[in-house]
């Protein structure tokens, strides 16, 4: 779900704008409908950063609660989804950096478990490469992972990411570049075969 989709759907969606207006006016049921629309995305961002379902659940709920509280300051003409995802990413990074997260460690591998899926890449990507990538993602510092998630999964601009996470554009750029380089190195044996070069590299 990228920025282009976002512009075509949420921003132009009068129903959503109406719901947002009602929610900003204090209508909790309108807000609940908004939550229903974005719950999977916001949870997805949280899970990819914190890597544990229980924590991602907390983060996703808290992200929506913060969004609700801040709704009166939110520009209702802007799409809600990316904003909520940035709030979630911010909370998720804070969690990952916290001492509690270090104590918890990583789960037995619910998150991003390489699984048989119906997606068209399955034929190209062998399970081993996916496993390696999943572990490489886990080993990234949380700050780098958050930037990577907002960019790669949410297709947010550097500016949006910088604002959302309270970073400079330069920091976003360098964290993303470093994260990608680590992942590339981890996957190098698979990439070298050329088998994984699905999708073009041209922007």
């Amino acid at each position: 779900m990228g920025r282009v989709t976002e512009l075509l759907t949420s921003e132009a969606d009068p129903v959503e704008r109406d719901l947002l207006r009602k929610a900003a006016g204090g209508n909790l049921f309108a807000f609940e409908e908004i939550v229903r629309r974005y719950q999977r995305r916001v949870y997805g961002v949280a899970l990819r950063i914190v890597r544990r379902h229980d924590v991602a659940d907390d983060v996703a709920q808290e992200a929506f609660i913060r969004a609700w509280k801040a709704l009166d300051t939110f520009d209702l003409e802007r799409p809600f989804g990316p904003w909520a995802c940035r709030i979630a990413a911010n909370l998720a990074v804070n969690h990952v950096r916290s001492p509690r997260a270090r104590e918890e460690g990583l789960p037995e591998g619910h998150a991003e478990q390489p699984a048989v899926s119906q997606d068209p890449l399955t034929g190209v990507l062998d399970a081993e490469a996916r496993d390696v990538l999943a572990r490489a993602l886990e080993s990234l510092p949380g700050e780098q992972r958050a930037v990577f998630v907002l960019r790669v999964y949410e297709e947010q601009s550097y500016k949006e990411i910088a604002e959302g996470l309270g970073l400079s554009m330069g920091t976003v750029m360098s964290r993303l570049s470093r994260a990608r380089e680590k992942l590339r190195l981890a996957l190098a044996p698979y990439l070298a075969t050329g088998a994984l070069r699905a999708g073009g590299g041209e922007p």
Binding site: Q39, R40, D57, Q113, L121, L183, G199
Partner: peptide
């Protein structure tokens, strides 16, 4: 550059699924 793009694609193919009924 192609490898970096492939990393992104591969990452996007990784599922992030919630337990059944969670939503």
């Amino acid at each position: 550059l192609e490898e970096l793009a492939a990393v992104d694609d591969l990452a996007r193919a990784l599922p992030a699924e919630a337990p059944d009924g969670y939503f």
